[in-house]
């Protein structure tokens, strides 16, 4: 630890000195009128014979940040994975129902998974940069998707890194191994890697929970800054985080051995006027 000791602890995040930690929510969303980007209808995910989620119908609105909250094991991640067919990679996983993106059912056998995953990127709980240099981490997917021109690649790399506030930190060591970066930097690199492909939506699976609080704050700010430009779905255990950044909140709960969608609405509605008793109990910290 070489940092000076008198450095303020609370320099991160959206909490300003003097503000109440839970400031009353303004009636977001302004930036994103409720226009659906992805719609699921009766979506169920099974692992073998066990249902992870059952009959979830929900619309994710374009340009908004939608938070999926609820206790562990209630199917939030399964729901997220179904949205860009990462469920294909889980042995024994079966998906039923409809997931509609621009009017097409992406669960259809004939759907173009490659195109889907380019449109809908994903960031995982544990930062997973490839064991390559910082630059190569961004270059590899770009080249794969047909960007060959050197200057175009360099421009996209820089833009993506600036977008996540990493450019100034790594511009002098683009050829250093990505795994030499700190955890928070690695996670922002992963976000940059997804952004470089110009997706329309980004799925985050608890992106901050493997990071220390300072780094988590930085990453959270970056995610919040995506509002309006990308549709964002974020799984989080952290209600305070959902309250800070989400425009829409969906609460999942385990009912009869399977994850169900209990409540879905604007952040203000869910946090301040929950209709379902489970939601009210969960929000106020009585359950969960």
């Amino acid at each position: 630890m070489t940092k000076p000791a008198q450095k303020p602890v609370l320099e991160f995040g959206t909490v300003k000195p003097g503000a109440r930690p839970w400031a009353p929510l303004e009636e977001r969303p302004k930036c994103c009128e409720p226009r659906p980007f992805v719609r699921t209808e009766g979506l169920s995910v099974f692992y073998g014979s066990r249902a992870a989620i059952r009959e979830v119908s929900l619309s994710v609105n374009r340009g908004c940040i939608t938070a999926l909250v609820g206790p562990s094991g209630c199917g939030k991640t399964s729901f997220l994975c179904a949205l860009n067919r990462m469920t294909d990679l889980i042995p024994g996983a079966k998906v039923y129902g409809r997931v509609e993106l621009s009017g097409e059912d992406i669960l259809d056998a004939g759907a173009d998974v490659v195109a889907l995953r380019r449109r809908v990127g994903m960031i995982f709980q544990k930062p997973n940069p490839f064991p390559l240099s910082v630059r190569r981490n961004l270059e590899l997917p770009l080249r794969e998707h047909g960007v060959r021109d050197r200057s175009a690649i360099e421009e996209k790399v820089e833009r993506a890194l600036r977008d996540v506030g990493l450019w100034e930190e790594v511009k002098d060591r683009l050829d250093a191994p990505a795994q030499a970066l700190s955890g928070g930097q690695q996670q922002r690199l992963c976000i940059a890697r997804a952004l470089a492909l110009d997706p329309e939506a980004l799925l985050f699976d608890e992106p901050c929970s493997a990071l220390d609080p300072l780094a988590a704050g930085v990453v959270e700010d970056r995610i919040a800054s995506l509002r309006g430009r990308y549709s964002v779905v974020i799984v989080t255990h952290n209600l305070a985080q959902a309250r800070r950044i989400a425009d829409w909140v969906a609460l999942f709960w385990m009912i009869d051995g399977a994850g169900r969608l209990v409540e879905y609405g604007s952040s203000k509605a869910v946090f301040e006027a929950a209709t379902h008793p489970i939601t009210a109990a969960y929000i106020s910290g009585i359950r969960g």
Binding site: R117, R118, N128, F130, E144, A194, L197
Partner: peptide, 15 residues
């Protein structure tokens, strides 16, 4: 994680 990351970036299995 590498495989998941690669799939999420729509990299082909060959790559």
């Amino acid at each position: 994680e590498y495989r998941m990351g690669a799939a999420a970036l729509a990299l082909s299995r060959t790559t």
